[in-house]
Amino acid sequence: MSENSRSRWKSLLLRHETALLFVVVIEWLCFNAIGPRFGTLDNNFDILRHTVEIGLLALVMTPIILTGGIDLSVGSLLGLCAILFGKLWRDAGLSPFAAGLVTLGLGALAGGLNASLITLLRLPPLIVTLGTYSLFRGVAEAITRGADTFTNFPASFLFLGQERWLGLPTQMWLFCGVAVVVWLLVHRTTFGRSFRAIGFSPEGARYAGLPVRSRLALVYVLAGVVAALAAIIYTARLGQAKADAGTGYELFAITAVVLGGTSIFGGVGTVHGTLLGVAAIAVLNNGLVHARQPREAAGMLTGALLLLALSAGVAPKLWAAWRSRHHASPSPAPKST
C-alpha cells in the first residue's frame, strides 16, 4: 500500500504542472530579490489585474487546442468587442450593463461565424481564424475610422476594472468564475471528455457516436463569448476602448496554453496547467518591468518561451526515434561523423 502511495507521490512530482509551479515560484522569488517593490501586495494585485484578459483568452483557448484546433482571432475579437461595447454605451445610449450583455451576445455571434465555417464547411481552423483575425480587427478599425476612442465611462463601470471588491481586484472574481466554469467543463463533464477524444482521434470520436460537430462549435462560440467578456474588462481597466485593444493577445494565450502542458496536437492538457502558464508569463512580464528591463523584452521572451516549450514537447519523441534508428541500423555508422 505504501509502495502505491509513494509511486503516486512520485508521479505527482514529475507532472508538468508541478514543475511549472516550481518555475513560477522561483521566478517570483527571483524578481522579489531584484525589484524592491515587486513583492508588495499592491504590485501583486497589479499583476493580477493586467493578467485577467489574457488569462480569460488562455482559458478558452485550452478546450480549442484540446480538440486539435486553434483560434487566432481572439485578440482581434477582443478589440472589436471593446469598440462595439463603447459604441453601444455612448452612441446607442445603453447602460453599461445592458451594453455588456449585448456585447457578450455579439461575441457569441462572432464565435459562431468561426464555428460554422469550421464545422459546416470543414475548413481548417487555422485559415478560418486567420481570416477572421483580419476581419474582426478591420471592422473595429472601420467603425472607429482608426481614431475614435471611447472614454469617460461612469465610475460604476470602472469599478469593474480598477477597484477592489471583497479584498480582491473586482475583475478577479469574474476571472475566477470563468476559470471554475471552464475547469469544470473540461475536467468534470462529458463535454471535456469529448474534446479530448476529438483531439486524439476525430474519426474515433465519430465512430463512438459523439456529436463531433456540435462539440467543436461549442468551443469556438465559447471563445467568442469570453473574448467579449475580456473586452469589457479591458475597457473597464483602462477606462477607454480603442480599435487596437488586445493586439497580439492570441499569441500570449496560445503560449500560456502550450506552456501549461497542453499538446498543440490535441488531446492532452489541463486547465490548471494553463492557469500556471498564464501566471508564469504574467510574473515574467511584470518582473522584467520592475527589474528595469524594457517592456519589449517580455514580448520577445514570450515568443522564445513558446518555441522552447514546443520543442521540449517533441524532444523526447524525436530522441527516441533517433535512438531506435541508430540501434536498429545494421550497418555501422560512419566514424567520421
Partner: peptide
C-alpha cells in the same frame, strides 16, 4: 508551422 511562425513573428 502556424505556431512556430506565430512565435518567431512576435520574437
Amino acid at each position: 508551422s502556424i505556431v512556430v511562425t506565430l512565435a518567431t513573428m512576435v520574437t
